[in-house]
Amino acid sequence: MMTKPSDTPRTSAGPWQSALRSLLRNRSALASLAVLGLIVLACLCAPFYARHIAHVDPFVSNVAGTIVLNGQETDIMQPNDNPLHLGLSPIGPTGHATYLLGADSQGRDIMARLLYGGRNSLLISFSAAVLCLVMAGTVGIVAGFFGGITDMVLCRLMDIMWAVPVYLFAISLSIVTITSSLHIGPFVIEADNLLIPIVIIALVYVPYAARPVRGRVIALRQAEFVTAARCLGVPRWRIVLHDILPNVSTTLVVMGPLLMAMALLAESALSFLSIGVQAPAASWGTIILDGEGLIYTRPMVAIAPGLAIVAVVLALNILGDGLRDALDVRDTSRRE
């Protein structure tokens, strides 16, 4: 973004290039990148998996359905194994392509729903992280660079947001927006629109991300190269874009994966409380909710999305650590 790739051969490696190089030398970061890539790829293939491998429709109830297992026709809803065989439980993990991880209480294929749910969970957490970085970057840069009354107002606003626990804040915002669909001018945002959780999650984490940016900008504002730019008669907006932003962007990039991990957890929590992704669409949070009632008989329904969340959050955190190590230019460039 900041360093234009030059076509001359004598050009030397820019800060981004050398950061990428050291990231590629970091094995744990690479491994986490691979895990993330694999999960994203699998989720992208969700429709293909459902139609051509599992041969199921994960969005319709299939309580009365049967599948053929080892040449035998088997009910999806099966009698419980308790002595009196009271009630029905969905089929457990089959070990076959169809209903690989079993079914939920509505007889839907968990594996297929897991992949579809991953699409929503990852899309929401990624978009929320990006949106949050944009908003937090803007707020942090404006507050830090202009200081004075602007800084005070923005900081107090963030304090107020920060004073409310993140999850409570997100929950209350979600309940309001989901119960009464949002009308913004001519646009109506329905309750099942993914924009609602994206915007809410991004918003509640703005104070978290804006604070370090503001601190960095305050330090940069006093940096001698900013004084030098003022001395050259560079307008303030240009100093922000050309001198401040490139130096803050590393802070933002490092925060990205961590923010996405937090957004994923928040999204799952909201969906688990059925105020995030709305049925029949799935997310890892809603699948855990589906598995809640089956936790004693069919624990896999809740465990599978739980493991997926853990894997992604862990990978994102390790990636974030790797990015921080790779992008810490202050250490490498000052060495003489």
């Binding site: 900041m2 001698e224 001395c231 001198d243 130096n247």
Partner: peptide, 17 residues
């Protein structure tokens, strides 16, 4: 009217060519 600063490193933005 221009200025040359004492700290030759701090007065150059490290992220720009």
């Amino acid at each position: 009217m221009q200025m040359v600063f004492q700290d030759s490193y701090a007065s150059l933005n490290p992220r720009r060519r």
